[in-house]
């Protein structure tokens, strides 16, 4: 359903506030079908915020965005979809290592990845991925 809406109605995301409303609807849906997921997203938020230099904001197209020094590490939509920008090399590696790591739902030929969190184990994967992105950004910041 999510993929269908993004594919055929994705252009509507440019209407101010509509993507946020869609995310609120996802939250409502998640509350009905998989309420634990909302707790896992909270757990991830709490964990990421313990890492130095991180902040959390609302993603422009709905969801929770994790930042390091103002740069996006990734974001989680309220249906548990984690989107992250890494690079193509790491993306290939991760996709070979773990089948839960997929091409981004919209940007196929890019360094973006998507992970659909459905089970408790997926929370650990999401945290591991965010930590990897955090370390990449932190190393880059150190080198600069």
């Amino acid at each position: 359903m999510f993929v269908f809406i993004i594919r055929y109605f994705g252009f509507l995301k440019f209407i101010p506030g509509l993507a946020l409303l869609f995310d609120a609807q996802l939250k409502l849906w998640t509350l009905i079908v998989n309420p634990n997921l909302l707790d896992w997203i909270d757990d991830i938020e709490h964990e990421v915020l313990t890492w130095p230099g991180t902040t959390v904001t609302t993603h422009k197209y709905g969801g929770l965005q994790f930042n390091y020094n103002g740069k996006e590490l990734g974001h989680i939509h309220s249906n548990g979809l984690l989107d992250m920008l890494l690079n193509r090399k790491i993306k290939q590696q991760l996709m070979q290592q773990d089948r839960r790591v997929q091409d981004h739902h919209s940007f196929k030929n890019s360094g973006w990845i998507s992970v659909y969190m459905k089970h408790h184990d997926d929370k650990q994967l999401a945290l591991a991925l965010l930590e990897r992105a955090y370390n990449l950004h932190a190393d880059k910041a150190l080198n600069n």
Binding site: L31, P35, L38, I41
Partner: peptide, 11 residues
């Protein structure tokens, strides 16, 4: 409280 409870209370 967490997001789950905030969503439920909003409902």
């Amino acid at each position: 409280f967490g997001s789950r409870q905030l969503s439920a209370w909003s409902c």
